[in-house]
Design a protein around this nucleic acid. Sequence first.
DNA 1: GCTCTGTTAGAAACTGGTTACTCACTGGCC
DNA 2: GGCCAGTGAGTAACCAGTTTCTAACAGAGC
Lengths: 359, 359
Amino acid sequence: MRAGTGGRAEDRDEPSSSAGSGARRGPRPAGAATISRVAEAAGVSRATVSRVMNGSTTVKPELAARVRAAAQALDYEPSVAARSLALGRTGTISLVVPDLSNPLFQGVLRGLSQAAGKAGRQLLVAESNEDAEEETILAIEARRNSDGLVLASPRAPGERLRELSDRLAPFVLVYREVRGLAAPSLSVDNDAGINELVAHLTGLGHRHLAYLSGPSASSSHAARLAALRAAAAGTPGFTLTELPCGSMFDDGHATARPVLECGASAVVAFNDMVASGALTGLHELGVRVPGDVSVTGFDDIPFARYTTPPLTTVSIPKNELGRQAWERLWALMNGESGGYNVRFQPRLLIRDSTGPAPS
Amino acid sequence: MRAGTGGRAEDRDEPSSSAGSGARRGPRPAGAATISRVAEAAGVSRATVSRVMNGSTTVKPELAARVRAAAQALDYEPSVAARSLALGRTGTISLVVPDLSNPLFQGVLRGLSQAAGKAGRQLLVAESNEDAEEETILAIEARRNSDGLVLASPRAPGERLRELSDRLAPFVLVYREVRGLAAPSLSVDNDAGINELVAHLTGLGHRHLAYLSGPSASSSHAARLAALRAAAAGTPGFTLTELPCGSMFDDGHATARPVLECGASAVVAFNDMVASGALTGLHELGVRVPGDVSVTGFDDIPFARYTTPPLTTVSIPKNELGRQAWERLWALMNGESGGYNVRFQPRLLIRDSTGPAPS
DNA sequence: GCTCTGTTAGAAACTGGTTACTCACTGGCC
DNA sequence: GGCCAGTGAGTAACCAGTTTCTAACAGAGC
């Protein structure tokens, strides 16, 4: 019923009977037991059922047992919506990211999902498709459906985030720092990462670097580029060539030829995906890595270890960002301070895609 | 505070003032406007405000405007919880997967997220950590917090799923088919994929295949292995060696030596991650791919195009699965049938990791 | 001018829980 | 035996919306 990407679908046996389960008449899930029904069945008041279900100790064991039995018999499950309304909280937090296919955000998602899960919280996820406006709209929407928000918003203007700060609180920002924002942020020290990378490459004798630029709206790209320029300016006899590229495999792949043409002996790619693409592209052009050209990435995505050759890159603690985001958010939700902004120090991972500059 | 994976964290300036935003006294978000307050401000009843907010046409334009103005002035946003309770639905659906770091599930997540997002629905995500018991517990929990469920549950026994079917409905199953289950399932025709792969390899002259086994509890692994055995049994002079392996890069990497030792001329890996790992491992052992050994994967993860050499694999429409899961679920939520089970036909992608068998 | 009909908006019931307050009953102590 | 404290459970008020039912009112038709 629409142009499928891949397979022609092949029909099969119909799933048996009651899949739809009614759901037509009225909102309630048909026969679902309510607290009133359980109370009636156990011959107690709703209050008592509520107390038993929430483990209050002020109910006589015998009565509690009767209530539990009734609940069991009726397959009673408290309504999440009613509970949320009465308690004023949902038991859910949300995460908004620009792109779910980016390993960077997958890492945070994973770390956050596990930390929140351990605390018995549900996780709402929304993807903003790299759109600055959508980032904020989705953030508001997601926040309304939950008790707190973790926001990865590389595109939205800082001013806008400050405006929205009240409506989004409690929330924590990841992979970004915004001056004067009333929320803790967890970010990565791009400067330090770039500097380590540059030191490593100059140590190997490289004097001409090509930077494969990330998306111009990306705050990470901006930070990395600035650091590179500063490094270049501070090193006599050092050339930096900036090549427009992107953030995906294909972008890197397509930029292999410009790299070759610009004569750089080392490539600093915006991220690992671009670096991998470049690696493949260079390979196809018969360029040896690291013999002819060294290549570095950024982020240390899981695949970086398995490129050929394995990629020298800057590792950032993606899962840890997710975990810490949870802890910060949890603190905020309890009215505590959320703590200071944190900039994670990345770590240079030297693998086989970098080597001495050809003489 | 805890052993960080990567970076020593470096303190920075404290986020300004009101991050915590109170939240201490009582459940309600302090000053948040309610429908009553808006009604009062506009000098109308709550019913009228509700009607205006939901776009009912039975309100005089002039009154509607007054209500809208009041809502605007008070920054009114309807309480999601109250709305859920009154309407009997949450506007949210959920997805449960065994492993968020697996590209297979990331694909479904992405497709589902986009489709649900387009329909204005929120998406709840939970990860079961490959644990059969947790798969079902999380599924129930997630379902209770939403209006419908998409479940990827490769481990949970079919019997258990049938038992739970009532509590989980409406739901759709992905990457798996369970006989007699009252829910539509979207799966992949592993048989067909394996057969295409085998035909391709035998066409290239290969007669001895090594299968790098997936996790024994995985239903995909079971299906693929069965198909391979059937193919082997049906082809005279054909040898199939089954090597224990796993589902991750490292598993494949570690199995490179056994592959070499078993003398097979072609490797069929459980999935692309294993295949990539094997590729790297073989490369390290000085084995040429595809000169000495051909290697194939399964799934066509984004990275498969960028291994060296690019990986011959079986492509399955991961995002499409997510999109279709949404459509099926949507139908079910509207009391419609949800349709037939569907098995997607995978597509063989011949790239450079397979070649003629060495003579 | 009166009745009938249609439109608009309000009153009140309802969604399913939680919890502050109250009260009945029990037992200890004087 | 009466008073008091403590305990266990019920009553009823909330949480913030939606929706059915009803009533007021205006305009049309006779």
